[in-house]
Design a binder for these strands. Sequence first.
RNA 1: GUUCCUAUCGUCUAGAGGCCUAGGACACCAGGUUUUCAUCCUGGUAACACGGGUUCGAAUCCCGUUGGGAAUGCCA
Length: 530
Amino acid sequence: MSIRARFAPSPTGQVHIGNIRTAIFNYLFTRHNKGEFLLRIEDTDLERSTKQAIDALYDCMKWLGLDYDGEVMYQTTQSEHHKQVAKEFAAKGLAYELNPGEENTPVLFRLEYDCDSFPFVRSKGMVKVEVSAEAPVKINRAGVVYSTVNHKGKVVESAGCLAGFKDLKVYGKEGEILFALTSGNIEEIKSLVEPVTIENASAIEFERREVYYNDLVKKELSKPLDSIKDFIIIRSDKSPVFHLANVCDDITQHVTHIVRGDDHVENTYRHLFLFHAMGYPVPVYAHLPMIVNASGKPYSKRDGDAFVGDFREKGFLPHALFNYLALLGWSPGDDREKMSMEEMIEAFEIEKAQHSAAQFDFAKLSNMNGAYIAEMAFDEFENICWDFAERFEYKGNADRNVFRKVASLMQSRTKVFTDIAAWSYFFEDVKEYDAKGMKKFLKDETMRNALSSLVPVFAAGDLKDASAIENAIRNAETAFGFGQGKLNQSVRVAVTGTTVGAGMYETIEILGTEKCAERITKALAQPLPA
RNA sequence: GUUCCUAUCGUCUAGAGGCCUAGGACACCAGGUUUUCAUCCUGGUAACACGGGUUCGAAUCCCGUUGGGAAUGCCA
């Protein structure tokens, strides 16, 4: 049977990079294995799920090239099915109401007591736990509640589902058995609403079982069953809870592999029981580590730049983002980093995914984006720049031919498309002068005189190409006793207001020497920063 | 509190008991090319969290400690 994996986002707000990284891994995983990549939109949270959020999701996926197979499933269309499944559970004794008989009561799923034969449950042998006599041991259908004394002498309460305490015995002070869970009374306990309360217990003893599964990324994972509780599957308003809906839909969509964030590791232990209760073989899981922000913390609402849409706005190429995100928590095992889609699909082995969280590095993404820009065909680059310039005022003054020349000078200098904001001095007057640059290059008196001497030379307007312009600058340097090239940066600051840019002579050539003469005069009239 | 997960340069990572004097990339620093800026090239600083074990041999396997994260929701 071929592999079927899904991306199942809840469309609440913007699409987050952590989320889309999960989509990328699912995509690469299925494409590598020639399987199917399904999309399911978990829109059951009516309060927060919006049309805009769904549109934003499709938009992001399309932009990144994440094409999915088959029809999209909207989870809200499945809610009748979810409720039906819950009813079947109740009929089979696998679910019960929290407050029986009450109108608005949630429904809980019971972790099956007779689970020794389940393929994901195993025994860890008998354990004995000292309990505090200060609080009673309570047992009912929801499980066992008991208290222990911690190393500081504090009484701490613990609770777990019935299934966690196979063959439970509660001992009194003299070691006598106060209560025992047996095949004879288990059915009765399973229906007990009011708990059996056992005072003055000294210890409990039971067979500890644990739930386990083999994660493709994290290898074998396990958790004691006595640390898991029965859980709600239907809310008091009758709506299905995530756990139920998620598992039901995975079954409906015939999902074979679940690739998701490792914040779901703990849910998996419960979902395993759900799959089993519905008679479906448990899928294979792969839990991906999270992406954290520059301070090493999980992304929160404050980290504004974590949305896919923001990266698009900032001028990142979709493939650069895709490539970078694929490398966050995965590597092909060799030194390759810049990879085509085909290469990534070919190399993608989910087992090579990292076990621990990865920190997002904006600088590395920018560098990779710059590398992709550098190798772009010039026309494509120029077209994107022209579109991008829409958001900058200078575009109003820009002649497309001049813009083209500027773009050809700037391609190797562009990391992100918003960098082209800095091209404004080609199309409009310098509004701001870099303070550091002015202090460094426009302060010296002789230097200012040398610059002044350039004004009439430029104003004459007979220097037509870069090498003539270069000669003029060389001459001024010689006349004022400067070494070769000493004047370049001063001219740059005076003409462009900044210390970085394209080649100086080419820049002046595009601008025209007359305009540069005006700008030098204007720059020399600026007050020097303190 | 309990349970689960996790730990290699500042960051992303390579590493499957001997190929490790720990490799690559980003960032940073220095030098070169460009008489300037950027690209580019060369070089450099920089890591196996700590403590025990297993082994002839440990970044790698085991245990513990510490740090980080998660779950313990009628959120998903």
